[in-house]
């Protein structure tokens, strides 16, 4: 297992390097001049030139690239072009709200999606199955901005149960403010989970080894929960890994609707102001997050099914 981890980490190094390079060049080809954004359209050419010089944007691109790599390797992500605040501080402030929202959404998605998917698979084509498939289809088709607004209208404005905005103060306040955003993303994710869990479970219960187990007289419960369930979870875990990226993009919209701080809204704000430093920092973190989550997914396979434990 350790060898596997080391091997995966080594493979991650070129991936990170390529990602950093793509991020750098993608930002440099973005139209729009950060100096012009800061100084305004009335700025003289001299003022623009001065500012570009201060920001190092007047250097040849290859020099900017080397500075960028050097700074990142030494852990320096620079400072916000607009406010001068260190990017690491901004990311640290905004990382926790986003990661909390993402993880809680996954938890809700799994809790709602997997059991219902399995139940549907165990009673295929029954009214429960048909009903659940329609429900999952509705969640799957709901864009976060629509579902978020509907949840706010229902649970915040009409029923007055949850707050409609902000991230709350104190532990319970934060948890309370987290509920509606979590369900916005979690319900959508549960639709995906439900479908994958159902399909995967259906496939497993029709396998020969399940038939054999049943023929041997093993109780149905044991066959389902001990044998079929474990194997059917493997594709579901893969989906969680893939969905992390979708969750991050969903978090951008959800954070905006619920006026929560977070990496998504930080990155979007940075695009508008062409704040390269913040944008670079956010994109690098997103990339690292995806790489890390995929690693976790690979490792988790082995816990679900030891037969595929990496060597």
């Amino acid at each position: 297992m350790l060898k596997f981890l080391v091997r995966r980490l080594l493979v991650a190094i070129p991936t990170v390097f390529i990602t950093l390079t793509i991020i750098f060049f993608a930002l440099r080809v973005l139209p729009g001049d950060p100096a012009l954004v800061i100084l305004g359209e009335n700025a003289s050419e001299d003022a623009l030139k001065n500012l570009r010089q201060q920001m190092g944007l007047d250097l040849p691109v290859w020099q900017q690239y080397l500075h960028y790599l050097g700074n990142i390797l030494s852990g320096d992500f620079g400072e916000s072009i607009a406010s001068g605040t260190p990017v690491m501080t901004l990311i640290a402030d905004n990382f926790l709200p986003t990661i909390t929202l993402s993880i809680s959404s996954i938890v809700v998605g799994c809790i709602l999606g997997i059991p219902i998917g399995i139940l549907s698979a165990l009673k295929p084509n029954s009214w429960i199955d048909s009903f659940m498939r329609v429900v999952s289809f509705i969640w799957l088709s709901s864009p976060p901005f629509l579902l978020g607004i509907l949840l706010i209208l229902a649970f915040s404005l009409k029923l007055n149960v949850f707050p409609s905005m902000g991230s709350g103060e104190g532990f319970w306040g934060s948890l309370f403010h987290l509920i509606l955003p979590t369900f916005t993303l979690g319900l959508i994710l549960s639709g995906v989970m439900m479908r994958f869990a159902r399909a995967s479970m259906l496939e497993e219960i029709n396998q020969d080894y399940i038939r054999t187990a049943k023929a041997k007289g093993i109780p149905n419960k044991v066959v389902i929960f001990k044998h079929a369930l474990r194997n059917s979870l493997i594709p579901v875990i893969t989906v969680i890994g893939i969905d992390i990226t979708a969750l991050i993009s969903g978090a951008v919209i959800t954070e905006t609707i619920f006026s929560r701080p977070g990496l998504g809204s930080l990155a979007v704000g940075a695009i508008v102001t062409r704040d390269f430093a913040i944008l670079q920092g956010c994109l690098i973190l997103f990339a690292l997050l995806v790489i890390f989550v995929n690693l976790i997914v690979d490792v988790s396979y082995s816990f679900v099914n030891p037969k595929i434990r990496p060597r």
């Binding site: 809680s104 938890v107 991230s167 532990f171 934060s174």
Partner: peptide, 17 residues
């Protein structure tokens, strides 16, 4: 994971308190 969500919610709130 559940503990993490709770702790993170707590951390994100304490940093803003």
């Amino acid at each position: 994971i559940l503990t993490m969500v709770l702790v993170l919610a707590g951390c994100s709130s304490s940093s803003e308190t």
